[in-house]
Design a protein around this nucleic acid. Structure first.
Lengths: 298, 298
DNA sequence: GTTTATTGATGCGTGGATTGCATCATGCGG
DNA sequence: CCGCATGATGCAATCCACGCATCAATAAAC
């Protein structure tokens, strides 16, 4: 066991305490009898009390030696076990991946990746934390999560980022809404509509992105209601108070009280990127990222 | 803490894992930053995987490093505790004294010594084992007991032995026995009496001694009954089946159904000696022996 | 943008520590 | 009384861990 270097003195004593014979112990330890003799002497000098009574014919433990042996007999075993555990982690055979995700990844992207990952890497634990895009950046910086699903694009020299989806936005309306009659919805069509959006606290990044897109098209948003809860928001739409805008991957999860139509415009899309620190070279994270990016696009 | 020499590498890593800064850690460890840097490098090389991610501005634990730290964080604490425990034993401030005793020491000698010893050395445990004289010699040789009360005399170059008592033997009779009328009992008076003695297995050494004493006086013993139990033996005496012979210290514990008279003869005495190995230099044993021999003679 | 300070890593020379070999003193078994 | 085993020790060679000085990289200060 090469890994226990630094613990030779203790190891030596434990061996001698078992063998009660310096020569045999020295052989077992792979060194000269004299060296072993001096190691024990040094250990005793260091401790300040004798561990062994030696005569030329016999070696016996002192009472203190007995206590010292009993207390530390399993220390090396425990240490070796800790080395083995750490090595498994280092080799990616076990460990923990902490994943942050925001709402748009919650329905398909993250669950599918996690499901497949847990199947292909059953020894690696996954920890999921719902955090919005901005929070994930902080969490990543603080090493509170290992990887995060966030709204893209994201570029930073200290981070890796892969784009997992680039999906169209949909207008979500009550059933039988006038917009549904159009063959194609454009950003301009939204201009006249009452909007129901999440508030800034809840939507954060997404809300800013929407503002940017529409103002780039010269469209002013008419926000009728703000909600801080997704279910409530959908309920408000279904009740006819207005329409909202969601990316494609959420549409399937909306229920039957609302309808949805894609907005045809190259800029009106939402990217989801998976981000992790460049310095985080752990094979667990690498494996998770590989799994996540290899999922078939919808 | 000087006692943890030999564990510097582990200690160093634990400190760095807490400080996440080599210079501060080096200062805390009392060595140069470069030395610390190399220690960690060596530890990593030894383990075969990295424990820390370093940039010139920042140090972070790898996942394996986190595991390694958690597993070993308390290792040094435990080790230090074991050193302290062993040191207490080495200094005689705690520990265990295992004491063997035979019947003649069971009534006064051993209990008084143990009582006083436990009072004066409350941190030292005492373990009592009833073993007859011959068995104690074996137990001492095998380090199964630390000291033994046995029938003396005892002389051996590898052992210390102190004589604690040299007491007269008593003839123990039923109440109103003819012997009680004599002013002084001699060995010859026993000759005509029916005797009740312990069997060889139970009395062992004592039985041989009695045989020796009487045959030296030319007296043949007339053993009427053998018993293997002290209470039964006294019962048999009380019932009038014969008399027995006990040393003085047992007389007080005999009860009211029997009487006792000393045998007046210089050879008819019983010594009790306390014996321990010369190689056993533990301060606990030394302290117990000192207590035992300093008790006031009865 | 330039400077300054701080980070961890590294080249190097020194001194103490550790090693193996040979040998010693001691005690057991024949 | 003589081997044979034990653990301890003298000694020389070697190793290796240390501190000093310095480097490259980078963050902070101006």
């Amino acid at each position: 066991m090469a890994g226990r270097t630094g613990l030779e003195m203790l190891d030596s004593f434990l061996v001698v305490a078992e063998e009660l014979n310096f020569r045999r112990s020295a052989e077992r330890l792979g060194l000269d009898q004299s060296a072993l003799s001096r190691r024990i002497q040094k250990l005793e000098a260091l401790l300040g009390f004798r561990l062994l009574e030696r005569t030329t014919r016999e070696v016996a433990l002192t009472q203190a030696g007995r206590v010292f042996y009993q207390e530390n007999a399993h220390l090396l075993t425990r240490y070796d076990a800790s080395v083995a555990a750490a090595r498994r982690v280092a080799e990616g055979k076990s460990g923990l991946v902490r994943i942050g995700y925001m709402a748009f990844a919650a329905t398909e992207l993250m669950p599918m990746a996690v499901a497949r990952f847990r199947q292909s890497h059953p020894h690696i634990e996954t920890e999921l934390r719902y955090i919005r895009t901005q929070g994930q950046k902080i969490a990543l910086a603080n090493d509170e999560i290992d990887a995060g699903y966030m709204i893209g694009p994201f570029e930073h020299s200290e981070y890796h980022a892969v784009t997992l989806t680039d999906e169209p936005l949909y207008a979500v309306t009550p059933r039988a809404h006038p917009l549904l009659h159009r063959t194609a919805i454009t950003p301009a069509d939204i201009a006249g509509q009452d909007l129901i959006l999440g508030d800034l606290r809840e939507w954060g990044e997404y809300r800013w992105r929407l503002n940017d897109m529409f103002s780039a098209e010269g469209v002013a948003l008419k926000v009728r209601v703000e909600a801080s809860n997704t279910l409530a928001l959908i309920g408000l739409v279904a009740a006819g108070l207005g329409i909202t805008i969601y990316p494609e991957s959420l549409i399937g999860a909306l229920g039957r009280n609302v309808e949805a139509r894609p907005i045809h415009h190259p800029a009106f899309r939402s990217r989801t990127v998976l981000v992790w620190k460049r310095t985080n070279r752990s094979p667990q994270v690498r494996a998770f990222v590989d799994t996540a990016r290899s999922l078939p696009p919808r």
